[in-house]
């Protein structure tokens, strides 16, 4: 996208359901715009409900930004697989990817809004997590 600013924090959406992940990404694009690197992943490797580490790694790569990447997850496995994916990243990238403790849809929109204003990864995570504050 021409308006993409590589300096903004990337957003990755991880859900057990590819439909939820894609739908949440659609909401981010429509509400926040194209100024934020964004990727989604959902489903297990057989196409069923679940998450998989390879898919999460690919999404992190797609949404990669020098400013870092914030990951929004839904339930249990999405979080543990995301943490596993972060562990598998090259060492210099590991510290620049954070899993947010926030609702996946609302958190993604809020995180992207924060990112679109040029905020840091820590600020993006903090803002998304305000939903549970």
């Amino acid at each position: 996208m021409s308006s993409l600013r590589p300096g903004n924090v990337g957003i990755v959406i991880v859900s057990h359901s590819p439909k939820i992940a894609e739908g949440a990404a659609d909401m981010v694009r429509q509400m926040v715009g194209d100024a934020v690197p964004l990727a989604w992943t959902g489903g297990d490797v057989d196409g069923g409900l679940g998450t998989n580490v390879a898919g999460i790694l690919a999404a992190i790569e797609t949404a990669w930004s020098p400013a870092g990447v914030a990951i929004l997850v839904d339930l249990g496995g999405a979080e543990t697989n995301s943490e596993m994916a972060v562990e598998m990243l090259p060492e210099d990238r590991r510290a620049r990817v954070l899993v947010c403790n926030a609702p996946v849809v609302e958190g993604a929109v809020i995180a992207a809004t924060e990112s679109s204003g040029g905020s840091s990864l820590a600020a993006v995570k903090r803002s998304a997590e305000e939903f549970y504050a």
Binding site: M31, V32, G33, V109, T113, S116, G117, G118, S119
Partner: peptide
Amino acid sequence: HARPSVKLTQCAKG
């Protein structure tokens, strides 16, 4: 609501 809130926040952040 949600969408105007996002626009207001983005504008303010500028």
